[in-house]
Amino acid sequence: MHFHSLESWQHSHNFANQHQSPAEKNTKIVMVLTAVTMVAEIIAGTVFGSMALLADGWHMATHVAAFGITLFAYQYARRHASNPQYTYGTGKVSVLGGFASAVALGVVAFMMAFESVGRFFDPHGIQFSEAIAVAILGLLVNLASAWLLQDHDDHHHHGHHHDAHHHGHGHQDHNLRAAYFHVLADALTSVLAIIALVAGKFWGWIWLDAAMGLVGAAVIVRWAYGLVQDTSAILLDGSVDKKIQLEILTALETDSDNRVTDLHVWYLNENYLAATIALVTHFPQSPEYYKQQLSHISALAHVIVEVNPCAGESCSAESSTVGATASRPLTL
């Protein structure tokens, strides 16, 4: 029995930033602005009969989902920071939210595409002036949002870059930049919607509105497909890329006569990894010694090392069994 304290051997499994930053506050403002404009554009697109406006509204919905999930994940992680129910913390909450959003919005995009194709064969009347006014409003909101996010990025990022690894600002800024590019993409679809509506109003090119509906649907489907691919790999504990596995192998096997016999690396969230490693060696050290050799791989947040002393005849032909690594005998 251990009667002394175990605290020095224990660590947190929650890898989220514990404090609300100005980045998070600005993202909240942008999310509310975008959500209100999104609803206005979807309603206006339906009432005024414009597929381009509808596509712009639903494209905004992809970004409202992204902002909302990011913010919800921060708050959820803070609330459940010490909840033992989550074995490796709450890192996958945002990943699960992203997967659900991608599936839902992918279905919406297919419905939009179906409707847009129908409009080519059966054009509907469009109230151009009203639709143009709403599309311009959408563009102005996007530009204001981009300014809000960019203004913050310029002057918060530099002040906190030095401690990014310790306090999560590196990932926070990454989220902020992602939000900034989302908003710029929205501004582009707003511009395309305005062009399509102006062309329809003045030159009678009604087909261009349906074409913009198709373009918007294609953009959303592409976003949804990419997000489903990325998130499902993390949710199913998909293996990380071979580069990181090779980095772990190299770090451990270049020391002494260590040979890694079993290696599993998986995502705890989109930024951090966990690894379980079994190795065999003639010169066993403490697990902490091997963890120290991996400390340069900053994404590794949780490492378990099993150290097996090499003994008996089997050692003379011991070989690595990880992935596609070529087997080779141990040097005795």
Rank of each mutant, 00 (worst) to 15 (best):
M1Y: 06
F3R: 11
S8H: 09
W9Q: 12
H11D: 05
S12G: 03
H13G: 02
S21P: 03
N26K: 05
T27P: 00
L33M: 15
L33P: 06
T34D: 09
I43Y: 08
G45Q: 03
T46Y: 07
M51N: 06
L53P: 01
L54G: 01
H59T: 08
A61S: 12
I69T: 08
L71W: 01
Y76P: 02
A81K: 08
S82C: 06
T90F: 01
G91M: 05
S94R: 10
F99R: 04
V103E: 02
A104E: 09
L105F: 10
V108Q: 02
A113I: 14
F120M: 11
A133L: 10
V134S: 09
V134Y: 10
I136K: 11
L139S: 00
L139G: 01
N142M: 02
N142I: 00
L148G: 02
Q150W: 14
D151R: 14
D153F: 14
D154E: 13
D154I: 12
G159Y: 12
H160Y: 13
H165T: 07
H166I: 05
H166T: 09
H167C: 04
H174V: 09
L176K: 01
A179H: 12
S190V: 00
I206W: 00
I206S: 04
I206L: 05
W207G: 03
A210V: 10
G213A: 11
A217Q: 00
I220A: 02
V221E: 00
V221L: 10
R222Q: 07
D237H: 13
Q245K: 10
T250V: 04
L252Q: 05
T254G: 02
H264N: 10
V265N: 02
N269A: 09
Y272Q: 14
E306G: 08
C310D: 01
G312P: 06
S316E: 15
S316R: 15
S320Q: 04
T321H: 15
